[in-house]
């Protein structure tokens, strides 16, 4: 196919980095090559016989390429490959391992919103959305992708420094019978049992119960 003389060192560590099924191909520049290296990218659906070029990642000098659109069907699995060019020379095609969007993606922590009354706090949890092509596109919650998704919720009493954990399946939690005029900090984590996936804990959202009016 009129390939150039391919003795350029190869791109390294070619892999998918995926968060909430935003699937981005990343790689490191070939060893010992300075500036000026250009790359092109192709991908394939496992089990289907052809490689498909990604035009938007042709002759690029960055070391990543967003393939979310091309790999959005999470019932399929994928490979991607990168080739480097410099001064008329090229490298070999360097491939990823087989990428399974369903099991190989990382999940962001849930969004947490907290409100309080005098003696209770109410927590609303929102699972992140699956990557979508455009802001106008249909929003798909990861809850639909992973039906067994659950939440671990941590509630810290800032006065006593005691932390409690709740395990909830639905997305709301009310903690009653709390001390008035006390700050509580809430953070939450998503966990899915099969496939086994855990998000990190969200950052803490603190709220204070209202002061006791009768005191």
């Amino acid at each position: 196919s009129g390939e150039l003389y391919c003795s350029l060192p190869n791109p390294r560590n070619v892999r998918f980095e995926s968060v909430n099924m935003k699937n981005v191909l990343h790689w490191s520049a070939p060893e010992g090559t300075g500036d000026g290296v250009l790359y092109k990218v192709k991908y394939s659906v496992y089990g289907v016989g052809k490689w498909i070029r990604k035009p938007e990642c042709r002759n690029i000098n960055r070391t990543w390429c967003d393939l979310s659109s091309e790999t959005s069907d999470y019932e399929e699995q994928y490979y991607a490959s990168v080739k480097a060019f410099l001064n008329g020379m090229c490298s070999d095609w360097m491939e990823t391992t087989r990428f399974n969007p369903l099991t190989d993606t990382k999940i962001d922590p849930p969004m947490v919103s907290v409100s309080s009354t005098e003696t209770s706090i109410s927590i609303i949890l929102t699972a992140p959305e699956k990557w979508k092509r455009s802001p106008e596109g249909e929003s798909v919650s990861l809850l639909r992708v992973y039906p067994g998704l659950q939440y671990n919720v941590s509630v810290l009493n800032k006065k006593t420094k005691k932390r409690w954990f709740f395990s909830v399946s639905n997305n709301t939690l009310v903690v009653p019978w709390l001390e008035p005029g006390t700050a509580y900090c809430v953070s939450a984590q998503i966990y899915v049992t099969t496939p086994l996936l855990h998000s990190g804990f969200s950052k803490e959202h603190c709220v204070a119960t209202l002061k006791d009016k009768t005191a």
Binding site: N152, W164, F166, S167, Y191
Partner: peptide, 13 residues
């Protein structure tokens, strides 16, 4: 039914 053991688990009020 407690599936994930993470230190202090809230049962009820």
């Amino acid at each position: 039914l407690v599936k994930e053991v993470s230190s202090v688990i809230h049962l009820d009020t």
